[in-house]
Amino acid sequence: MRKSFYQFLMTLRDPESHDEISQFAANAFFDQSFPKLEQAYEPLSHYLEENAGYLPSMTIFDDAFLKYQEQAREL
Rank of each mutant, 00 (worst) to 15 (best):
D14E: 08
D63L: 12
P43T: 13
P15C: 09
L75M: 14
L48H: 04
R73T: 13
F24G: 01
L55D: 01
D19M: 04
Y6K: 05
S17I: 02
T59V: 10
A64Q: 04
E70M: 12
P43Q: 11
Q32F: 15
A40E: 11
G53E: 14
A40Y: 08
R73W: 13
L12I: 06
F34N: 04
A28Y: 05
S45Y: 15
Q7N: 11
H46S: 09
Q32D: 06
Q39S: 09
N27C: 15
F5L: 09
P15L: 13
E42N: 13
F34D: 03
H46D: 11
L37F: 05
L55Q: 02
K36S: 09
T59W: 01
E74T: 15
H46F: 06
E50S: 08
Y47D: 00
F61R: 03
E50V: 00
I60K: 00
A40P: 00
F8V: 07
Q39F: 03
A26Q: 12
D63T: 11
L66V: 09
R73V: 13
P35I: 10
Q69V: 12
K36C: 05
D62V: 06
D19A: 12
P43N: 13
Q71C: 06
L75C: 12
L75D: 15
A64S: 07
E42S: 11
F65Q: 08
L44D: 10
R13S: 15
R2D: 14
D14V: 03
A40D: 07
L9T: 08
E16C: 02
F30R: 05
E16R: 07
Q39P: 00
S17Q: 06
L55G: 01
A52H: 02
E49G: 00
D14S: 10
D31R: 04
R2H: 11
Y47G: 00
Q7Y: 05
Y54Q: 01
S22R: 02
L48E: 02
E20I: 04
L12C: 15
A52C: 12
F8R: 06
P56D: 02
F34R: 03
L37I: 07
Q23P: 00
M10N: 10
D63A: 13
L75F: 14
N27K: 13
Q69K: 13
Y54N: 01
Q23T: 13
L9M: 12
L48I: 04
Q71E: 14
F65C: 05
